[in-house]
Amino acid sequence: MDAILLQILNGLDKGGAYALIALGLTIIFGTLGVVNFAHGALFMLGAFVAVSVKALLSLDKVTLDPTQTTAWGAPMEIRVPYIEAWLGDFGATLLEYSVPLSILVAIPFMLLIGIAMERGLIRFFYKRPHAEQILVTFGLAIVIQEIIKSMYGANPIPQPAPEVAKGMIDFGRMIGLDAGGVVYPAWRLIYFLFSALIIALVFAFLQFTTFGMVVRAGMADRETVGLLGIDIDRKFTIVFGIAAVVAGLAGVMYTPILSPDYHMGMDFLVLSFVVVVVGGMGSLGGAVAAGFLLGIVQSFASMNEVKNIIPGIDQVIIYLIAMIVLLVRPRGLMGRKGVMES
């Protein structure tokens, strides 16, 4: 029982990341009709916003200590972050909380990146075939990757969670089970709650605001909305920016779980597309449901009891499920009629 609960929790935090990326992909596809292969790169860019914020907060004053030398004979450098020198303990606290603080920077930054991407490149490919959209966005993803690699190197860069969120939470005891049976890292539970909050905010935005109503109308019938005198293109540009913000925030908060490197976006991209396809192209609810579902299934498939029966199942289970879903329900779990069927 404990093992099963642990894998469910594991699937939920993993699924949270899949759902957030897939949600952004679906929003872009549903509104603009663009298959955006650069979406994983946006997730990675978000993670590197956290890296950059920490690097900025860690900018240090370097003094040379002539009494000590390095192994190659140069004077030893003594480094003290400016922020600690100026603000003392408060500066140290800011450094410790650099990951959650990065959210404040990531929102405007990712919004700008999203808008610039859409206006500068993606809009020229709206009426082009999906194959061309895939090629150009994939190329863009590689360019972003290489820029990040040239700036930060290829090695992962650790981003610790704040001290208060580093420990474990006895989840089992919280739900009335024996103490110590289901103990789970606090930050991963925070990540799951964070992803649930972002998903709820996006849904609320689309459901309960006038902007959201116009966007939903545009998703259903772009031409008619345009004929009503609404500048739907402008609205969709902002939607692209919002999708970029969602992917970026998913990346920022994921950094204590996975030390960011330039390639992390690609690792999530393929899985996220499978999530979108399983959920149903253009279905926001489908993307979220499939994200969590596939996260949990992937966790269960990695259990030794399962792997002993079917070796290697953990490496193919997601694709196997995608095949089965597409055979039984060709439009995905919650797919809409007419999307990508022309």
Partner: peptide, 18 residues
């Protein structure tokens, strides 16, 4: 056995706990 470049290994680590 874990796939090369798995990224998140948590699903392989949780069974270690108990």
């Amino acid at each position: 056995r874990t796939p090369l470049g798995a990224g998140d290994f948590s699903q392989y680590i949780t069974p270690v706990l108990n």
